[in-house]
Computed example of a mutant assay.
Amino acid sequence: MAPKQIPERDPDAEEEPVVEIDRVTKRYGSLVAVNDVSIPVRDGEFLTILGPSGAGKTTLLHMIAGFERPSDGEIYIDNRPVSDEPPNERNIGLVFQSLALFPHMSVKENIAFPLKMRREAPEDIDGRIEEVLELVQLPVDYKHKPVGDLSGGQQQRVAFARAIVYEPTLLLLDEPLSSLDKKLREEMRSELTRIHAETDLTIVHVTHNQTEALSMADRIAVINDGALEQLAPAKEIYAEPATPFVAEFIGDTTMLDGTVDRVDGGRATVAVGDDGVAVETDGGLTPGDGVRIALRAEKIALDHNSVDADNAYDATVKQVAFEGDQTQYTVSVPSLDTVIDVTHQDPDPETVFDRGDAVTAGWDAADTFVYDQ
């Protein structure tokens, strides 16, 4: 077999990343699970790979870990190509969705396991275990408890402790919070953020949960059908989605398809259904263009009478879902031949609506994202 071709690196890069995924592709027969993806991971960064089920994010993580080998491209760790290295030579910590703790062992034995595999001096192991238990905020006297006697949250902390006790170059998290209930998941999100801040670990985290990604990540890599849709800081991903997929996947978003009817300076009117939608443009739209418009649910105003907005339409409330801190409305807009999602957090009785109410729905041109179809 011919030797693997390692892609050339950019010699002008300002800062060498701890991990570099460089034009990586993974094929399984005719199926392309990951397609020409490049992601640099910075020292001390919390990077989340986000996407729906089957997007290729776990395959990408497994290639970083060494469980899978790229079909094309290369992965570098500390500037070293590692595709031909086994997992145990990569100095990587791992936490899986299943946690993969040893149920027949105590907390101490679970955490000590990777240290013993690395032939650490026995006299050093106890001290390291106590340090890491303090970091994950488990009482030191828990080290003698059988791991099966712990709660789900406590087991999660043991799994994190075991993954970082040997001070890995990189920590990989494969949907570790997905099996937890809502309250515990929120608690562990906060704990992970704290641990990252206190240790400055470089973390690559995989999830399909956008709330997890937005709340924890420094940057997010959005993956769809094996390809990288956008790589940017969390706030930028939400405020400036680069593609229709990112706009629809991140947040509660309604998509409208239409054709540009006219352009007037920085404004354009898009024909949607039997009406028009005003949008902002930087000059990239011309009459006749097919476009997709993305609307965030929280940017849409509802009123029993009228709304002060660039776009306003007669509408009917079809569904109401009260969620405590907010209310979700599903609203039919006949003139646009569509149904839109609306999120309201205002407790004012005048802005509370019931199923069947006739309302006005509206939003400003500046609150839309516009993409080529």
Rank of each mutant, 00 (worst) to 15 (best):
V246C: 08
P233M: 08
T199M: 08
D310G: 08
P86Q: 07
G288V: 02
A227I: 10
R219M: 01
E89W: 11
L31Q: 12
F102A: 00
D341F: 06
I39Q: 00
P241L: 02
V342M: 08
T368S: 11
G127A: 13
R267F: 13
H344D: 13
T316S: 09
A301W: 02
T330I: 14
L99W: 15
V359G: 09
S178F: 08
P114D: 03
P139V: 06
R119N: 15
Y329M: 09
M1Q: 11
V317L: 08
D72C: 06
Y371M: 07
E167F: 02
I195F: 05
S98L: 10
K26L: 12
A294P: 07
V147P: 06
D149I: 01
A65L: 00
G51P: 01
I111S: 04
M1R: 11
G265M: 05
A297V: 04
D72K: 14
V277W: 06
D364Y: 03
V132C: 05
Q5D: 10
L302T: 08
V41D: 03
E120W: 15
G251E: 06
D126R: 12
G56C: 08
K26I: 10
P233C: 05
R90V: 07
N224M: 01
A234I: 09
E240Q: 13
A294K: 07
K182R: 09
E323M: 14
L285W: 03
G276A: 12
Q156A: 11
I195M: 09
W363Q: 03
Q319S: 13
D149L: 10
S53I: 00
R80H: 12
V19N: 00
V260F: 06
R90D: 06
K116W: 10
D126A: 14
G266S: 15
D174N: 06
A365Y: 13
I129K: 01
S178P: 06
L256M: 12
G283R: 02
L47W: 03
L171K: 02
D174R: 05
E229G: 01
S306R: 13
F113M: 09
Q326C: 08
A294T: 06
A112M: 10
R90P: 10
D78A: 13
F67G: 08
A197Q: 15
D264L: 05
K57M: 02
V95C: 05
L135E: 07
P11H: 07
T169D: 15
R219V: 00
V24G: 00
V246R: 04
